[in-house]
């Protein structure tokens, strides 16, 4: 298998389920809604969108014993498509339609339509996220200190 990075048009590797669930959790609700407009496919709600809190934890000294840092709002939803496929959505924030859409997409991505949806939706969400992260990293990088040593008198 050719793993050369110089490949002219590398087909993006399909995203695994934990990765797409994470991407959907972090995506902007409006962006996902624009890429996946109503109507959603026929479904039966197993768990109607529910807003709740998840307790976040840190570790003392970054690597030691865990402690409770505070909560974060999360909305979750579970549904079953008419074909029987079950989808789950866990998204950050309190947007019920975001969680519903994430669950519907999670189910669809497991069906035969999945490959097409990966290209049509996931790659665009991932690209938007990567661009936002890259811009922020580039602004931070511009504030990196370049130390230099002054020439001392006796060296001159």
């Amino acid at each position: 298998m050719d793993k050369s990075p110089q490949m002219s048009s590398p087909a993006p590797a399909p995203m695994a389920r934990p990765d797409w669930l994470g991407l959907l959790a972090r995506s902007r609700p409006a962006h996902l809604a624009a890429l996946m407009p109503d109507p959603l496919p026929d479904h039966h709600l197993l768990r109607a969108p529910e807003i709740g809190a998840v307790m976040l934890r840190g570790r003392a000294g970054a690597t030691g014993a865990p402690f409770n840092l505070g909560e974060m709002t999360v909305t979750r939803c579970s549904l079953r498509l008419s074909c029987g496929t079950v989808g789950h959505g866990y998204v950050q924030g309190r947007d019920r339609s975001h969680a519903l859409r994430a669950a519907a997409l999670d189910a669809l991505l497991q069906t035969a339509e999945g490959a097409a949806l990966q290209t049509r939706i996931l790659t665009l969400l991932a690209a938007a996220e990567a661009e936002a992260r890259q811009t922020r990293a580039a602004k931070a990088a511009a504030t990196k200190v370049e130390f230099f040593t002054l020439v001392r008198g006796e060296d001159a």
Partner: peptide
């Protein structure tokens, strides 16, 4: 008022 959905793994 929020139900606790669980806890996250340490960041």
């Amino acid at each position: 008022t929020l139900p606790r959905l669980g806890h996250a793994t340490p960041v």
